[in-house]
Computed example of a mutant assay.
Amino acid sequence: MLPFILKRLGLALLVAFTVSFISFLLLFLSGDPAAALAGETASGEDIEAIRRVYGFDRPMLVQYGEWLVSALQGDFGESYYFKLPVAGLIAERLQVTMILGVCGISFALLTAVPLGVAAAIRPNSIVDRVALFMSVAGQAMPSFWFGLILIVVFAIQLGMLPPSGAETWRHFILPTVVLGYYAMPAIMRLTRAGMLDTLNSDYIRTARAKGAGEGRVLFKHALRNAIIPVVSLAAVQMGFMLGGSIVVESVFALHGAGYLAWESIARNDLPTVQALILVFSMFYIVFTFLADVLNAWLDPRMRSA
C-alpha cells in the first residue's frame, strides 16, 4: 500500500506544479496585465510605469519563480482591488465555500447512492423510474433557475427558510439542495449501473448459494465493489463544487471563494485570480489523490496499477 501511495503522491505533486505554471502563464497570455490595471484611458507612459512597479517587465520565468516561492510560503501578494493580503482574503471567503461544498456533496451522496441502489435492486420499478426522472431533471435544470424557484417557494411564499446570507445553518439549506442536486444525476446513474453489473456477478451468486443474507450480499459484497467508481466521481464533484459554486453563491448572496473569483476577474485583480486558480486546482488534486487511496483500500487489485 505504501508504494502505491508514494507513487500517487509523486504524480499529484507533478500535476500541481504543472497546473501552477499553466495557470500563471494563461493569465499573462490573456492580455497585458499592466494595460488592464492602467485602464483604457491610460497613456503609454502610465502603462510602462505600472509595468515597472509590479515587475511585469522582468522575464516570465523569473516572475513565476518568485511567485511560486512566495505561494509555497503562503504569501500570494496583495490584492490590487481590495488592498488586502490575498491569503487572508481567500481564507476568509473559503470558509463559506467549504461549508457549502461539504454540505452539497453530503446531500448528493446521501440521496443519490441509496436511490441508485434501490433502482438497481428493482429495475423498471416505480423507484427506478423516479430515480431516472430525478436524474434527467437534474441534468436539464439550470442551477440558477432551480435556486430561484426554491427561493420563491420556500423563502417568499412559505417563509420557511431565509433567501440569502450565511449567518446561520438555515441559510445553507437551499444552496446545499441546489448544489447537491446538480451532482446527484451522475452519482445516481453510476451507482445504479455498478450495482446492476455487480449483482449479476458470479461471486454474488456464490454468496447467495452459501446462504448469506440479502443485506450482507448487497452492502458487504455488491456495494463495496460498485462504490469504487462513485468514490472517484465524488472526489471530482467535490472539487467542482468548491471551484464552480459561483452561480449558487451569486443567487443566494453567499460571499464565498467562488463569488470572490468572479469579483477578481471582473476587476482585473490578478494576484487574487492567480491564487484562487491555484487553490481550486489543489482541491481537485488532493481530493483525487484521496479517492485513489480509498479505492486502493477498497480494492487491493488497484494497488498494482
Rank of each mutant, 00 (worst) to 15 (best):
Q95C: 07
G44E: 04
V130A: 07
L150Q: 08
Q95F: 13
F144V: 02
G39E: 05
E78C: 01
S106M: 11
E48H: 06
G44Q: 10
G65N: 03
P85F: 00
E167S: 13
L27S: 08
F172M: 14
V69R: 03
Q139W: 04
L84I: 04
D57A: 11
W169C: 07
F28R: 15
I105K: 00
R93M: 05
L29Q: 13
A42R: 02
L29F: 12
M160G: 02
G165V: 10
L61K: 05
F154S: 03
G39V: 04
Y80T: 03
S106A: 15
L161D: 04
R52H: 09
L132M: 15
A120C: 10
A34I: 10
A112D: 05
Y81A: 11
Q139K: 02
M141R: 01
L84K: 12
V136R: 05
S70N: 15
S106C: 13
T41V: 07
M98E: 09
M134Q: 05
A112Y: 01
I90Y: 03
A112C: 07
D32E: 06
P162F: 02
L72K: 08
D75W: 04
L61M: 13
R93F: 04
P33R: 06
V117A: 09
L26T: 13
W67L: 06
A118I: 13
G159F: 05
A118V: 12
V102C: 07
A108V: 06
E66F: 06
A49Y: 05
C103A: 15
T168S: 15
T168R: 12
Q157N: 14
F76A: 00
A119E: 00
V102N: 01
